[in-house]
Design a protein around this nucleic acid. Sequence first.
DNA 1: CTGAAAGCGCTAACAA
DNA 2: TTGTTAGCGCTTTCAG
Lengths: 339, 339
Amino acid sequence: MTMADVAHEAGVSVASVSNFLNKQPYMSEAMAARIAEAIDRLGYKVNSSARNLRSGRTRLLKLVIPDLRQVYFSELAEDILAEARQHGYGVIVESTTNNRARELESIASMGTHSADGLILSPLMMTVDDIAALDGDYPLVLLGERLFGVNAPHVVIRNREGAAAATYHLLDAGCRRIAVVGAVPHPEHDFSSGSIRTHGYREALAARDIPCDDSLLIETQGWGSADGLAAVDTMLESGLQFDAVFALNDLLAWGVLRELRERGVAVPDDVRVIGFDDVEESAYMVPSLSTVNPGREAIARLAVESIIQQVESGSRAPAQTIEAPYSLSLRESSPALACA
Amino acid sequence: MTMADVAHEAGVSVASVSNFLNKQPYMSEAMAARIAEAIDRLGYKVNSSARNLRSGRTRLLKLVIPDLRQVYFSELAEDILAEARQHGYGVIVESTTNNRARELESIASMGTHSADGLILSPLMMTVDDIAALDGDYPLVLLGERLFGVNAPHVVIRNREGAAAATYHLLDAGCRRIAVVGAVPHPEHDFSSGSIRTHGYREALAARDIPCDDSLLIETQGWGSADGLAAVDTMLESGLQFDAVFALNDLLAWGVLRELRERGVAVPDDVRVIGFDDVEESAYMVPSLSTVNPGREAIARLAVESIIQQVESGSRAPAQTIEAPYSLSLRESSPALACA
DNA sequence: CTGAAAGCGCTAACAA
DNA sequence: TTGTTAGCGCTTTCAG
């Protein structure tokens, strides 16, 4: 079943059928009608391989993320899928399972023209790898900062978001805010963890409050089990604190659970705030206050940039596109009544 | 940069380059070496659009699921991605956001040969829609049963899994097992909810224990907020129960949290068991016992079936492939000591 | 406004 | 063992 069959059925040329399908202007009503009718009489569908070869486009994007099992990424992926769909693009999703070699493979596969553009959330790549991103194909980087790549970055305002959370807690009168999941001694200087920790420090500094490093609690990972363990450690060591800023929502879930377990009232004794504004956080008990990193905006901005690049036929220059953050204040640290 | 360039560079014919790339036998070492060298001197990559058109294959699968934000599906998707990858296939992921029209669109798009096969998790489609699945392209259905479709189904053993959970609780001495998320009066007869409820009833019946319908607690949705609300209702109505079987893990999370809130000890006063064995469930406090529906096996079986269909060149006949389930017993309802 | 024809880059049948 | 060649089905000039 090819276009030639349709052309024959309608008694017109293949070119006309193609024009009809691609909504070219200047076609008589009559011909359009006949073609339309032939198409659905025959149940014709264009063959995308042929179209792709000829047009040099696939209307497919490649999304490469570290791990779909992490809520943050699955929600991000869902948003990106929706946005791409609106623009008429499909998405090939690849999970690198936190594996550098996989990240590089996914990038290399862009050479085959199987997708029109790449949205990459790099996690394990290092500066040594950025040469792999050379090329003229449409590319957008997400999240973690990777310097020296000649492409747009859509980033979370980690520093500002963390600072905003901290200001909020300070405004609520908290003075000993523990940071769960902190990176007190930045190694990979630009991980979300260290930037968020930095934002916290900055907010304290702006208010002339000294930062007590014993409040910076490092954790093994960033799952709820780690949040829970952190609270145990804090309580057992006799640490004094009147708020917890967990650097992601999963940590915060564990924190909430363990505080309750230990009979610490939230938010009365201790306020708790997270980061990510994952869907399920709104349904915790108490519901979790958290920093909304603008996931939907990230999805939208990333897809828009990629598509603009696809349409312009070349990669956009390096630039940083910041997504708007906001605080989603819920029961674990309610908004302040106006004074 | 085409194959002709490589051929020219290596001083051979395009056919030889193609043979080399497709690992045909019968090629002299010398020629292979020269081609290999030319390829990486030029940094050549095959153009997949051209290959796809010519070969009639894309080495792409389409995965259509209701919602990536639901943990169950994001974990399933991750497993399917991994499995497909092992077989050298990429995956176009589409989320239907619980929307019947989207499901139908995704199916219709198979006509364009943009993917070699479809793995579909139908949710909103009805028997009226199954004609849309007619065709000869490789297809595997996941989860919810859809009768009359001429393709393999990979299914969870909902009934058996639910019965196993129930037997486990009965063996532990529980006699009043509340079912949260139950479907007491099946409407869509073959939803997971009603089958699991059925499995529960069946287990009671097998032990000659009458089923008290007041223990079947319906919920609005299947999120943790619903589980929480269910416990409130149960407690407030004075319902007596010594165990809760939540029909999915999210419900169970809410149940655990609210029981703790109300001072009900788990598992001492009330045992709790869920269904899905989602990753995060192992990190709840107490850690959640749950039915492992064999997600990895589902991913493997689905991908294997699709690929076998792709390779055989046509759709496999209707058949039901059941994934092995098991109980993941953790703190919320520990395994029984041997008597 | 419509049609004829030239490929897009590759694979596979066939010839050598 | 290697090379020649005919398309795969479509889009897109360009002529009519």
